[in-house]
Design a protein around this nucleic acid. Structure first.
Length: 599
RNA sequence: GGGCGCGUAGCUUAGCUUGGACAGAGCAUCGGGUUCCUAACCCGAGGGUCGGGGGUUCAAAUCCCCCCGCGCCCGCCA
């Protein structure tokens, strides 16, 4: 069980590939002799890779035995007995109902170290995919500081982009900027209004709280919650904001509008940049309106077969045939006043994406699940055959239950989380390093803090909810980012002290025969398959799990086997450490967790 | 009410796509390890009705059905 399936090959970039194919070829003849003529693909589908220690490949014979109406263990023994062992395999043996094989260690060592050292930062990468891909993620409204509840979207999206690129995909990341609608209008409404006319609640939330050097998202964002609350009570404010929404949608926003949105967005992006998250492109919703693409979508939807007009002039799609879980079986796509809705504009956005990218991935919180299905239905209505691939993740929740939100006092801002993380990381650094300059302490603390946060978020499968707890989010040991960073720093340290940190790294495979060394090489050899697997299934957490496993095995090796103090093995072990350092570093890069040469 | 997701040791989780060998980890707990390459580490121990019940199968955490619990969504908001 467990282990990887055989279907995650990463081609020439995969150290394991030749050994796996040798095993598959080896099985073919004995199976045929027993009267089972399975294609190599059929055999491969059953084979497990890395099935256990000293068990690189496992072939369960149950199915073959059933076909022959014979006992599995007997069949396994017979297959193993008929095998002609190829040079790539050290052993092919029957164990219970399995035929297991071990790769020949020296050639596996050579192939793994040569690839890891030869490909350098590209080890783990492959060229198994090439479809131009658009990954849209984050796309948070610019109403204030970046919220921790939303950071999972950004981390998942950015990590997936990195992993996809590592398999050869040309990836473009997009941030969809919603500068229309009430939320964006509310910001402009309050900040273009003279302060003397502000509601008292907004004044008291903003005034007296300014901190010198504060980020614009924090400053502007403080006005948002009380403004939003005020809006619910004041009919006059509702009318003003409504007029503003209309003005924005009709293409005549106040001149300050875009600048305000951009200013807040800039602050949010600065926070994301600390996590290594950046975007290739920003798509502004208002641009889709301005260039007429929304109008064209409205036109096509009105002409759609299930389009119906409501009494007040609004237009809807009758979605009863799409089985959407809505109480009313219709989706309004155009208001009574003729303006469009979010989902309508999203149709226009996706048509634009489809025109440029064969693969379109949307990273969405589970609260957007219905939106995604609605979008699919509307795309179908206008005869668009393509659909985005949705990567839907569960929300980050608070321990008391419920989603993290600005309501109910459960708000945690990313900047606050990072500030706390940096503070704790600094304490850890100072605890063990007294020799560092202040600037180095700062740099390491920042890297440890952001690494811990990113790793903590990405390590859990997207479909699992994440409960936010400070101590978990900021854990620096065990299955954490700093654990991997520490292992990388350790490897770097050994190399630094070797006198030849940059190589070359001549080695003799025969000298890397310790069980811990063999186990370590086998983990390193799995990096390309692990990345390929993560990309294929869009499971970024797999890479986090792999990184921990590699670091874990490296630490075991480190304790069990001396490197610098060893004799004849010294050069070979240095090569191994250099290869591991490369593997750990590349895994960290894929996770967006900073490398640290020392910590 | 309907849809989607989740339920695995005290806590956090991997494994579920493609059923297979004793369900792997981390934290916490308990017991060890540093004159030696970074102890943010390592070694060992205890701890599991894989939510419950049926079914399919030689074989079920994994597939199917029913039920229970939790979360989210079901707006002429985004």
């Amino acid at each position: 069980m467990a282990a990887n399936g055989a279907g995650d090959a990463a081609g020439d970039d995969d150290p394991i590939a030749p050994f796996l194919s040798a095993f598959l070829r080896t099985l073919e003849t004995p199976l045929a002799e027993l009267g089972i003529s399975w294609s190599p693909d059929a055999i491969e589908a059953l084979v497990e890779v890395a099935a256990g220690p000293e068990r690189d490949f496992a072939f369960p014979v149950h199915r073959a035995a059933a076909q022959l109406r014979r006992r599995p263990d007997e069949v396994a023994r017979e297959i193993a007995g008929r095998v002609t062992r190829p040079p790539e395999l050290a052993a092919v043996v029957a164990q219970g109902a399995y035929v297991n094989a071990t790769a020949e260690s020296e050639s596996l060592t050579r192939r793994t170290l040569d690839l890891a050292l030869g490909r350098g930062t590209r080890y783990g990468h492959s060229a198994i995919a090439q479809t131009p891909t658009c990954i849209e993620h984050t796309s948070a409204n610019a109403t204030g500081p970046f919220h921790v509840g939303r950071v999972r979207n950004a981390v998942i999206g950015d990590t997936l982009a990195r992993i996809d690129r590592a398999t050869g995909l040309p990836v473009t990341t997009q941030y969809y900027m919603d500068d229309m609608g009430r939320q964006a209008a509310l910001i402009t409404w309050i900040w273009t209004k003279p302060r003397g006319q502000w509601p008292p609640s907004v004044r008291s939330a903003v005034e007296g709280h300014e901190v010198p050097g504060e980020k614009p998202d924090a400053v502007r964002g403080r006005a948002y919650p009380p403004s939003s609350a005020f809006l619910k009570e004041s009919a006059e404010a509702q009318a003003e904001v409504g007029a503003l929404v209309q003005a924005i949608e009709s293409g005549h926003p106040p001149p300050e509008h875009r600048a305000l949105v951009q200013e807040i967005l800039g602050g949010m992006l600065a926070s994301l940049a600390r996590l290594g998250i950046t975007f290739d492109e920003f798509v502004w919703e208002s641009d889709l309106l301005r260039d007429g693409s929304v109008d064209r979508v409205l036109e096509r939807l009105r002409a759609a077969s299930h389009a119906v007009q409501e009494e007040n002039g609004a237009w809807a799609i009758d979605t009863s045939s799409y089985g959407l879980p809505k109480e009313s079986s219709r989706v309004i796509f155009q208001r009574g006043n003729g303006t469009s809705l979010y989902v309508t504009r999203d149709v226009a956005y996706h048509l634009e994406k489809f025109a440029r990218f064969p693969t379109v991935i949307d990273v969405l919180g589970q609260d957007h699940q219905l939106h995604a299905r609605t979008l699919d239905a509307l795309l179908a209505e206008i005869g668009e055959p393509r659909r985005p691939t949705y990567l839907i993740y569960q929300d980050i929740t608070v321990p008391e239950g419920g989603r993290m939100s600005t309501r109910g006092g459960s708000a945690v801002w990313l900047d606050g989380l990072l500030a706390e993380a940096v503070e704790r990381a600094r304490g850890e650094v100072l605890k063990r390093r007294e020799d560092l300059a202040d600037a180095d302490v700062d740099r390491i603390a920042e890297a440890v803090a952001t690494g811990a946060v990113r790793f903590h978020i990405v390590r859990v499968a997207v479909e699992k909810p994440v409960v936010f707890r400070w101590d978990d989010a900021l854990s620096f040991e065990g299955r954490s980012g700093p654990f991997v960073q520490y292992s990388y720093a350790r490897a770097s340290s050994v190399l630094r002290k070797s006198g030849t940190p940059d190589g070359p790294f001549p080695y003799e495979a025969a000298r890397l025969a310790d069980p811990e060394e063999r186990a370590l090489i086998r983990v390193l050899a799995r990096l390309p398959r692990s990345v390929a697997h993560a990309a294929r299934n869009r499971h970024p957490h797999v890479v986090a799990g792999y990184a921990h496993e590699l670091a874990d095995q490296f630490n075991r090796f480190y304790h069990a086997v001396p490197v610098l103090r060893s004799g004849d093995e010294r050069a070979s072990r240095l090569a191994l450490v250099a290869a591991i350092r490369q593997g750990l570093g590349n895994a960290l890069d894929l996770l967006g967790v900073p490398r640290l040469e020392t910590m």
